[in-house]
Simulated assay, not measured.
Amino acid sequence: MSVALPDRRPARRQRGIATLEFALMLMFGLLPLLLVTYSGVMIMAVQQTLSAASAEGARAAFRHATPGERRTAACLAARRSMQWLLTYAKQTPDCATAGAPPITVSTPTPCADLPAVQCIRVEVSYDYGAHPFLPGTGRVYGWVMPKPLRSTAVSQLDLGGN
């Protein structure tokens, strides 16, 4: 009676399969997850920057006297606060008029709740679809964010009749 030895050829064909599976999981599993996480964190950073820029613009509008000076000061302060975004998007807003995105400063108008009081509205925006941080994510996030990211702040300019 002879004992048959196991065939070692199938074991040789299995050599390296774990490495191949790891490489595929890394490429198709972990890297996309990391890229989506990174772009999500960057979108949150953009929104935080926009919030700070609109608030800085509204504060600057409060400190100056004439309406023209208030609008220019608000635009300049917002531009300073979001300079890294403007540099990345290759945008240079015109603070002389301050009437077009990415930085829009309204003329002093009556406030919505208190018509006797003048308010200025500072709105800043960033179009992630046109300037994504990772190529291709503009389209991916386009269905979630069809419009540019925005932040608005309103500054009450006077106490109205005091």
Rank of each mutant, 00 (worst) to 15 (best):
R71P: 00
A11R: 12
M25G: 15
R9F: 02
P101E: 07
P108Y: 02
F133G: 07
D113Y: 07
A96W: 03
P115Q: 08
T97Q: 10
R15C: 03
V124L: 10
R9M: 00
I17G: 12
T49E: 08
E56M: 13
I120D: 00
R15E: 11
P101N: 05
T104S: 11
Q47A: 12
S39H: 15
T109C: 00
Q14D: 13
Q91E: 15
H131L: 09
A98S: 13
C119Q: 02
T19H: 12
C119M: 05
T66P: 00
R13G: 01
T97H: 04
A74V: 03
Y88R: 15
P102H: 06
A130E: 08
C111M: 01
H131D: 10
A116N: 12
A23C: 05
T49I: 09
M44N: 11
T97N: 08
T97E: 12
T72M: 12
G68D: 11
L35R: 02
K90I: 08
F133H: 07
M42D: 06
V105W: 02
P32S: 08
A78N: 07
I43K: 04
G138D: 02
T19R: 13
W84F: 14
D127S: 12
R121G: 00
Y128Q: 10
C75S: 04
E56Y: 12
I17A: 15
S54N: 07
P32C: 06
P101A: 14
R71S: 10
A55T: 11
F28R: 04
R63I: 12
T137Q: 13
P32V: 07
E69S: 13
P115D: 01
T104A: 13
A98N: 03
G129E: 01
A61I: 01
G129F: 03
M82H: 03
V36M: 15
A100D: 12
G68F: 02
L26I: 09
V124Q: 09
A65W: 07
H64F: 13
A65Q: 13
S106H: 01
L20S: 10
L86V: 09
M27R: 05
D113P: 00
R9K: 10
F133I: 02
A78P: 05
V122C: 06
R12H: 09
F133T: 05
M44G: 15
T66H: 03
A112C: 01
T72C: 05
P132Y: 07
T87M: 07
L76N: 12
A61P: 03
Q48R: 13
A53H: 06
A100T: 15
E123C: 11
R71I: 00
Q118V: 00
A18F: 08
T109R: 14
